[in-house]
Design a binder for these strands. Structure first.
Length: 531
DNA sequence: CTGGGGATGGGGCCC
DNA sequence: CGGGCCCCATCCCCA
């Protein structure tokens, strides 16, 4: 009897030890994997940045003889130094300072066991791009299967990893990661990782669920890149990624709070994207891109109650400026793809270079610079944010008088109304600060007003109110000529043309007249596109 | 293909 | 200063 009890006890001990060991190994692997994935992502961005900068260099060489630009180069050189200092700080924090590493899990195994060898692959610079999906599941909600997503362009199978932590039978012990606790049904991360330049450094603190990325040193060592920055390219392209990366950071944070993340599309907490080559777009990120929408208020909606006006500084989780950095496109300050919501939201977003050229003062006093220099890019940059608002006002104060005089009509019009509040993104002038803040939502994508019925979000309260007529069916605008009723005055006005027969838009090519400009435009596109 | 309606984004203005 | 409204532009869907 005693022997039997002893055996049982021994078996239980062995079982517990194995479970603990499994959990520990899984946790370690996950941590390393996070670092690795983030690192690879950074490398990709850096490479694309380099490509873009090289292209930009060619462009700029043509116009370099302009003396004005030469003067600007010197000014921008200081920005580069600031950037480099920033990077230097960031680099100092990283604890993965060598080449990228990867844990290579033995093929055919879905779970990590303590008796399995762990191969550390260091220094491989092979260009790969893949999606890492780290899936944590407890014994109740997930079987031993591994969810693995990987891009098709993968070249080096050695880098492929599919790690499942907390596999069946692993209790939520011996882990600090909340994603593997029993309280968390399931978490899934999708991180893009791309080719490695061993010089890059990143910092990862997955134990605190914080991933912070910094650009690699190869940018600094690239003479072309440096030259570009001096030549008036968007300053500190490496930093352009930072806000995006901080979105990742926050995504990780949000994903650790126990949300069920089986459907990424519906997950409001993970709507973020970094601009990638479409062909290589990782699945996890591609969804967002396929929607052609960037609504980081989806993101923020996870942190605020639905249907309410997000409290400034509370509800908005992501309130940053992101930039689009596309592979073959010059790295202009164009937040269109991220910030726009699929329509034309970003159409007014000016190329940062244009703002430089239009307003030389911006070069040194650009809010973007100021925000970076103050390291606000990593916190919050939205117009609602008090920090940025203060900063913005400072920038306004520093630039207002000069720009108001130099810009003339575009941003300001002295005769009509003083528009001394300039958009920090496009320099458009407004008469008061509130107008500017509302306007800047065009660029930031902030949509503080959410519909209680359908979760749609709007940048303006009156738009929300107008939208809610869709749900209420309210149509306060009725046609006096017929029974038709409309929810918007503009609809009624448009409708009235049916009765009046008004067709004021005539085609310049064939004379055909249309009641609406859009009809005429479509007609001209289809009929006279070759003209 | 055209027209019509709906929905949404953005600017301007008024109260 | 905030709310609200008007207006315009654009896109989408459908008949």
């Amino acid at each position: 009897m005693a022997n039997s009890n002893g055996m049982v006890f021994h078996t239980q001990i062995a079982s517990i030890m194995e479970v603990l060991a499994n959990a520990a190994v899984a946790e370690i692997c996950k941590l390393v994997d996070d670092d690795y994935a983030v690192f690879r992502l950074e490398i990709t961005q850096s490479q694309k940045e380099n490509r873009s900068l090289r292209k930009k260099l060619l462009e700029l060489k043509v116009a370099r003889e302009r003396a004005e630009r030469t003067a600007r180069e010197r000014v921008l050189a200081s920005s580069v130094k600031i950037l480099d200092r920033y990077r230097g700080m960031a680099r100092g924090e990283g604890h993965l300072t060598a080449g990228h590493r990867s844990f290579v899990k033995p093929a055919g195994h879905n779970t990590w066991r303590d008796d399995q060898p762990i191969t550390i692959d260091e220094g491989s610079g092979t260009s790969t791009q893949q999606v890492i999906v780290i899936e944590s599941a407890d014994a109740e909600t997930a079987g031993p299967g591994v969810k693995q997503e990987r891009s098709e362009g993968e070249e080096n199978p050695r880098h492929s990893r599919d790690i499942q932590t907390g596999a069946a039978g692993v209790p939520p012990v011996a882990t600090e990661d909340p994603t593997t606790t029993a309280a968390q049904p399931r978490t899934q991360r999708s991180i893009t990782e791309v080719s490695g330049t061993p010089n890059a450094v990143l910092k990862s603190e997955t134990d605190t669920k914080t991933l912070t990325l910094h650009t690699g040193s190869d940018h600094r060592s690239d003479p072309e890149t440096l030259g570009l920055r001096r030549l008036g390219c968007p300053p500190a392209p490496g930093l352009e990624y930072l806000p995006v990366f901080h979105q990742i950071q926050k995504m990780v944070n949000s994903r650790g709070d126990g949300d069920t993340l089986d459907t990424e599309v519906d997950d409001p907490s993970c709507s973020y994207t970094t601009e990638m080559d479409p062909g290589n777009m990782p699945l996890g990120l591609k969804r967002q891109t396929d929607q052609s929408k960037w609504d980081w208020n989806q993101y923020s909606s996870s942190a605020c109650s639905e249907g309410c006006l997000d409290k400034k500084g509370e509800g908005l989780v992501v309130d940053e400026v992101t930039v689009k950095v596309e592979g073959d496109v010059p790295p202009t300050w164009n937040a269109d793809s991220h910030l726009g919501d699929g329509h034309s939201q970003g159409r007014d977003f000016l190329d940062y270079r244009e703002s430089l050229e239009i307003n030389p003062n911006v070069t040194t006093h650009s809010p973007l610079h100021a925000l970076r220099d103050c390291n606000l890019v990593s916190t919050s940059m939205g117009p609602s944010d008090s920090h940025s608002r203060i900063l913005f006002n400072q920038v306004l104060n520093s630039n207002d008088s000069a720009r108001v005089q130099t810009q003339g009509g575009g941003a300001t019009s002295g005769n009509i109304k003083e528009k001394r509040f300039l958009c920090m993104f496009c320099n458009k002038g407004f008469s008061c600060l509130q107008k500017v803040e509302i306007h800047q939502r065009v660029h930031t994508g902030e949509k503080p007003f959410s519909c209680t019925q359908c979760e749609k979000r709007f940048s303006r309260q009156d738009h929300l109110k107008r939208h809610q007529r869709v749900h209420t069916g309210e149509k306060p605008f009725s046609c006096t000529q017929c029974h038709m009723r409309f929810a918007q005055a503009g609809h009624l006005k448009m409708h009235l043309k049916v009765h009046t027969g008004e067709r004021q838009f005539a085609c310049t090519h064939c004379g055909k007249r249309f009641s609406e400009r859009s009809y005429l435009r479509i007609h001209q596109q289809k009929k006279h596109s070759t003209l």
